[in-house]
Amino acid sequence: MRIGVIGAGAVGGTLAALLASAGHEVEVTARGAQLDAIRAGGLRLDGGWGEHLARLTANATLAETPELVVLATKAQDAATALAANATRIGSTPILVVQNGLGGLRVAHEEAPDSPLLGGLALFAASYLEPGHVTVTAALPVIVGAGPGADRAQLESLAAVLAEAVPIEVTDDITGAQWTKLLINHVNALPAITGLSVQEVVADRGLRRIMTASMRETVRIARRIGVRFGRVQGVSGSLLGLVGALPLVLGQQFPRLLARRMGAVPNPGSTLQSIRRGQLTEIDYLNGAVVAAAAEHGLTAPVNAAIVALVHEVERAGTFLSPTEVASRIIL
């Protein structure tokens, strides 16, 4: 199948390399040093799914019309990327693989004629240097039908993707996105402090803040009628406990997530963006909780404070100490 991957960063690069290794004809879009590196020497993938050197067609925008588009840009870049590739996309099905909420809505606005699938990359990958991506946790991709896609299209495209990467199909992509959003709360505090997820969770004060942001998210989601889907063994009933328990007990949840990551320090995608001097997705992660609360006349003060600190680090380029973070986020 001809597959166009828009955005060849950690997630898009992983999917592109694996799809190419499975025999598909893959074209990727990239920018700057990443584009130059892929053109010159291919895309090297190593880690959890073995070593692959994918010789990919790489351009700033798609040069060919694909049979499937994988949108794997940062959430804030999605609309611009889809608009730039609109003539090649046409009515081609699009798999939107992004963190946070709202990706399917944006894709539907920019490509209203395309059937859409939502995708959640559960695997962890790091974009180490131009042309090189490492998979640190080899986990599945969850896919579900979005606007314009029926069950037959979902199963057909899921079968194609399953040739390259483990796939789980869900009947409720929105519920799964909310659960993944909650899991992704591990990303913000590393971006503020420069520490790995494991180091953040090991710090008592930071772990308490992370737990508070998760508890606040669960409580808001429940009030606005969200039903959490099961993701990575995390069920709605477990998240219900996170929302109900006092902080001292709820801290077992981030501890569980950190243990699952293993011993290799995991920086999280938001810290990776900070280190590359790029704007982060924080407005689509913890910021999505703040926005969802506001739409229903509610507030999310813990998540709002975290978003503000990530933006501060983006502007200043200086990380904050755990003590300073604890002094500025009042629980």
Rank of each mutant, 00 (worst) to 15 (best):
T65Q: 15
T65C: 13
T65L: 08
P66L: 09
P66Q: 12
P66R: 09
L68G: 00
L71V: 00
A72I: 06
A72Y: 03
A72W: 04
T73D: 05
A75K: 02
A75M: 10
A75G: 07
Q76P: 02
A78R: 04
A78Q: 15
T80K: 15
T80Y: 11
T80F: 14
L82G: 07
A84P: 06
A84G: 08
A86Q: 13
I89L: 09
I89E: 09
I89N: 05
S91T: 14
S91I: 04
S91C: 09
T92R: 08
P93N: 12
L95W: 07
L95N: 07
V96S: 03
V96G: 02
V96W: 01
V97G: 02
V97Q: 02
Q98T: 02
L101P: 03
L101N: 04
G102C: 11
G103P: 05
L104P: 02
L104H: 05
L104E: 14
R105G: 13
R105P: 03
A107R: 03
H108Q: 11
E109A: 15
P112D: 10
D113P: 01
S114H: 06
P115S: 02
P115T: 00
L116V: 03
G118M: 10
G119R: 03
G119Q: 11
A121Q: 08
A121W: 12
F123T: 05
F123I: 05
A124N: 15
A125H: 12
S126R: 10
S126H: 11
Y127M: 10
L128P: 01
L128W: 00
E129W: 00
E129S: 11
H132W: 09
V133P: 03
V133E: 05
T134E: 14
T134A: 14
T134W: 03
A138E: 06
L139K: 15
V143Q: 06
V143K: 06
G144S: 10
A145L: 01
G146N: 07
G146T: 08
P147F: 07
A149K: 00
